[in-house]
Design a binder for these strands. Sequence first.
DNA 1: ACCTGAACACCGTTCAAGT
DNA 2: ACCTGAACACCGTTCAAGT
Lengths: 175, 175
Amino acid sequence: MALDRAQVVDAAWHILQTYGLGDLSMRRLARELGVQPGALYWHVANKQELLAVLAQRMVGPLETSSIRPAGAAGDDAAALLLVARFRSLVLAVRDGADVVSVAHALDPLGMQPVPLLVTALTSQGRSPENAETVALTLTRFTLGSVTAQQTRESMELPTATMREEFEAGVRAILA
Amino acid sequence: MALDRAQVVDAAWHILQTYGLGDLSMRRLARELGVQPGALYWHVANKQELLAVLAQRMVGPLETSSIRPAGAAGDDAAALLLVARFRSLVLAVRDGADVVSVAHALDPLGMQPVPLLVTALTSQGRSPENAETVALTLTRFTLGSVTAQQTRESMELPTATMREEFEAGVRAILA
DNA sequence: ACCTGAACACCGTTCAAGT
DNA sequence: ACCTGAACACCGTTCAAGT
């Protein structure tokens, strides 16, 4: 019953969701799994690789259940829905924006929600160039917004207006 | 010739610019100043306060030299210039976006460039509500973009397209 | 008023050696 | 193949005691 990679990732996921990035250390993770810190390095290359896997897990749900809203041509409802779901998924994990921001930076056009947004926007009649611009803009704005919100949450400051500010921003970008 | 707060901040500023946030530790800072780590806590409350001061220093130049471009009414040239200068200032300091993002989260409407943008946008005929939305959207998009770029720079990955992506995003938001 | 010395409770990563 | 033990080079913060 030796440790395997899935157990390491699952335990890391649990710590991240429950206690946040500040508590997700390799030493804490090892303690939780009942092994020495060095043992983890048999299963993952380093902490950065582990965080990349967690980022993938956060945005994974976007790829399934792509309920295409039957909107009129020229209607950006699909993109609007995608970016709202992306925000929800990242917001639901403590310090999620920090983790996903690194993954996005490493692979801007490959990491979700960018490719799904590009597809949604081109099928609505936008040029590939414009779709890519808007997809990157929406993604980076969303990460900037959620970073701000989660920073405030970690300090127990109010965030009541931030959802509306996000939605108004998305409308401005898609306008 | 006792140490004072200005010397602490200046030394921190130097380390941040030269080596980045990963090297800006209280212990490293103390070593550079030739004191014990505990001595710093006479001059600053904690590391977070120090980073807030550094964020202010980064965006400080925005407030002077507000060369108002004599554009036609309805022209967003002033906002465009402001956000471009904001990006340059943050981009010029290693990990600048991480530091400024926290300061923005703590005081979204008070931290620059937001108040300057609101002024520029309202004087161009936008409503206060719309000006605030656009100012926050531009600021959070810029922080998201620079975070991505500086993450790539720290890993020595190419960033050739990122300036154009930023400018296209700004145009989409102001459109 | 300002700083040292020393401690407390931690980090990520490596690697010889064990099983 | 997988893990331990032990080390290396670090963290932020506190606080009695010194000057």
